[in-house]
Design a protein around this nucleic acid. Structure first.
Lengths: 247, 247
DNA sequence: CTGTACTATTGATATACATCAATTTCACAA
DNA sequence: TTGTGAAATTGATGTATATCAATAGTACAG
């Protein structure tokens, strides 16, 4: 079905052609969708969607984004991180439930909402993929509810690192087999201490201190604020509260 | 399209025939689905789905359920409450991301997963309704992330009460117009203090104390642990952090 | 290189909520 | 009715994390 010469130029050269929702489309479907797409670039700090607005739909080709909710007095909670191949926006709903910001330079492959929804109605694979992403987001949100409601600060930091590790594994091997990974693993932290704090329901000071504690426990090394290496995944998992300490 | 005599007996007498996913089905679609359904009753405290299992799919006809996630050492976080007309379970996914318990006597209208998924593939209205419910769940989960990550205890209690109020409004008038409601409103609290605590990331003691504070502030009255009346929705909203205190 | 502004770390103290401990209230059985 | 156990409330104290404050590191402009 998928003969390379049928694939649109832009898609053939696209870094996420075989990932995310595009991975589920045949060449002709891809062509149809490509004709509706428009690439857009965003700068770090730029707001892409405002909470409550209709907003944009599209694929993240490259870059890091945060979705955040804000209270009347300015308190913020980051509810999701988006990376390349993630799908941005909620087709079917007219109200974005969070504001979306570019954290790094970001390239999106955007669609007009109505056209995208019409296309999705014709392409079962596409709507299934979008819904599957929404389902995965729900599972992550609930995992984070457990973190925010029950975990201690150091467990939150460890869980955050574990999530970065898993994300990296997904990208690398498309599966979640921890054993496929070296025991020592260097991670790039894609967001600032302030953003980590807003994601974990903590303050920047506590984030700093708990990173330090994990270092002192020998679980991680901190090269600099943006680069840490995980020495032992099992110990990181234990620190994250996924294993009973007394076992 | 919807002629009463075409509707299956069981559905015609069903309290949720015009709510939830069933509201989106025509008589013939309803018949098809009805032939696959099986009613099941559960007792308070009974576990219906275990986290990680394939679990059940179906409509909640009547009763209250909680979805909860558990840590290795026993800490728990309630991630969702389900009431009549809500849809239970995640078609498309084979792993329930939370354990589901009956809180009260519960009546479900269950389906075999594979048969339901096959039916959904034929009934666009059905799959759209199921996906719409997943989307709504995601929005609620993110709202709760904001609560768990940023709100103070009294704001959490007020937000919880507001959610019960909104739920009741939805049921009553199928819309979310706060103005349609009397300014004094009596609420039945469907879950125990322990469950409220596990839902809000607090302890039972703090839940009790903050209920008391809201009473002392004149925002609510407490008839007994299960019955409270809201004196002023605007003040409840302010207490929940939806309005800036200093404004 | 030097200054400037921002981000991160580290330290001292405060506080909101948890924990521990009694009562009190409620549901229900005998 | 009275008794029994669980659920809820109320009180006294502890503690994890926030807050306030200072210092150190980093990126970038000139």
């Amino acid at each position: 079905m998928k003969t390379p010469k049928d694939i649109p130029e832009a898609c053939a050269n696209c870094g996420i052609r075989n990932r995310g929702v595009c991975a589920h489309l045949y060449a002709e479907e891809l062509s149809k969708l490509d004709s509706l797409s428009r690439r857009r670039r965003y700068r770090p700090g730029e707001t892409i969607v405002m909470e409550g607005s209709r907003g944009v739909v599209g694929n993240v080709i490259d870059g890091t984004l945060v979705e955040r909710k804000t209270m009347a007095d300015g308190r913020e909670q980051i509810v999701s991180l988006l990376f390349s191949a993630d799908f941005l926006g909620t087709p079917l709903s007219n109200q974005a439930d969070a504001t979306v910001d570019a954290v790094s330079d970001v390239m999106l492959c955007t669609f007009d909402r109505d056209q995208f929804e019409a296309a999705a109605a014709d392409l079962p694979g596409l709507s299934a993929a979008v819904h599957e992403q929404a389902r995965a987001e729900l599972a992550l949100a609930r995992e984070w509810m457990l973190l925010l409601g029950q975990k201690r600060a150091i467990e939150r930091i460890a869980t955050f690192l574990l999530r970065l590790v898993n994300r990296r594994l997904n990208v690398t091997c498309l599966h979640n087999f921890d054993d496929l990974m070296d025991d020592a693993q260097t991670l790039m932290i894609p967001i600032s201490r302030r953003q980590i704090a807003d994601f974990l329901g903590l303050t920047t000071e506590t984030v700093s201190r708990k990173f330090g504690e994990l270092r002192d426990l020998g679980v991680i090394d901190i090269a600099d604020a943006r680069h840490i290496t995980v020495h032992s995944l099992p110990r990181l998992r234990a620190a994250a509260g996924f294993v009973d300490e007394l076992a």
